[in-house]
């Protein structure tokens, strides 16, 4: 006897919970094989607002965790992601990938998570410096996370684009509000379930689904978002860049093909860090009488 097919409802991921959109709206994206992927939440500006509130609440505590602990948590994401290989392979194929493409996307994604997990407690040493100054000061520059990062995931990949931009932001102590690919949204939500089961605290990552023309402008003008990252947004790119000016958001556009193994690196982490320079009054540094 076979059971009835039990279909999964794909919902949003906000503040560690999986609510439906407050607007009650949905859309039904179709894969390139003509299969309807499901009724997907069409997020509204209020969902975004709620996600930002959750991200702001989570940001301080996330930043204050030790870098080593962040590293452990990111590695835990890889553990659980690996555990659910079958689910993701199935979803990639449902969204139009060939079995081989699906396997490749899965393994690249897994490697990328582990790669950035390793950077958590190392990037600050590489990006920081002790600066020579012409006075009796110990002068050093170190990294601080920007805060809340808004992310429009690349449209052409189901997961690797999203993960390639989420992970470096997380490693650096930022929290995120991400909009999944409009046409390939379902594995983004399954990934949210992985995040929720890892030790990632509630609100650190929030994932919405919906239309980028609707959500991107509101992200760009939101005064409590500190950085805006995306792939090329095409026609709306200029308008978005202008809207980012009001609160001096950092804005980065990435055109890399994230399926490539080499589309990763320290620069993705560094882009989302502010550099803080400290002048500490002290006797001479490095001279024969110095104790430093």
């Amino acid at each position: 006897m076979s059971n009835l097919e039990v279909l999964k409802t794909y919902k949003l991921y906000i503040g560690g919970a999986f609510p439906r959109t407050e607007s009650g709206r949905f859309y039904a994206p179709v894969s390139k094989h003509g299969e309807v992927l499901g009724n997907i939440c069409l997020s509204s500006r209020k969902d975004l607002r709620n996600a930002v509130v959750a991200a702001r609440k989570a940001q301080g505590p996330w930043e204050e965790r030790s870098a080593f602990n962040r590293s452990q948590i990111l590695y835990r994401i890889a553990e659980l992601f690996s555990d659910r290989k079958e689910i993701f392979l199935k979803e990639f194929q449902k969204q139009g990938s060939s079995p081989e493409e699906a396997r490749l996307e899965f393994s690249t994604t897994l490697d990328r998570i582990v790669y950035y997990a390793g950077w958590c407690d190392k990037f600050n040493q590489v990006l920081s410096s002790v600066n020579p100054v012409n006075s009796s000061h110990f002068n050093f520059s170190t990294c601080e996370p920007m805060g809340i990062v808004a992310l429009i995931a690349p449209q052409n990949t189901a997961l690797i684009g999203l993960v390639s931009l989420i992970l470096p932001a997380l490693a650096g102590g930022n929290t995120l509000v991400a909009l999944a690919s409009e046409t390939l949204p379902i594995s983004a939500i399954s990934f949210a379930e992985v995040l929720n089961d890892s030790d990632v605290p509630a609100g650190v990552i929030n994932i919405l689904t919906g239309k980028q023309e609707e959500i991107a402008p509101i992200m760009a003008s939101h005064m409590d978002i500190n950085a805006f990252i995306s792939s090329d947004l095409g026609a709306i790119e200029n308008a978005i860049a202008e809207a980012c000016i009001d609160n001096l958001k950092r804005k980065f556009t990435y055109t890399e093909d994230f399926n490539q193994r080499e589309s990763q690196g320290l620069t993705f982490i560094a882009d989302l860090q502010e550099i803080k320079t400290t002048w500490h009054p002290i006797e001479n540094i490095g001279g024969s009488t110095s104790t430093y």
Partner: peptide, 9 residues
């Protein structure tokens, strides 16, 4: 203003 505000201000 039409844009969501931040407590920073």
């Amino acid at each position: 203003s039409g844009s969501y505000q931040s407590p920073n201000y």
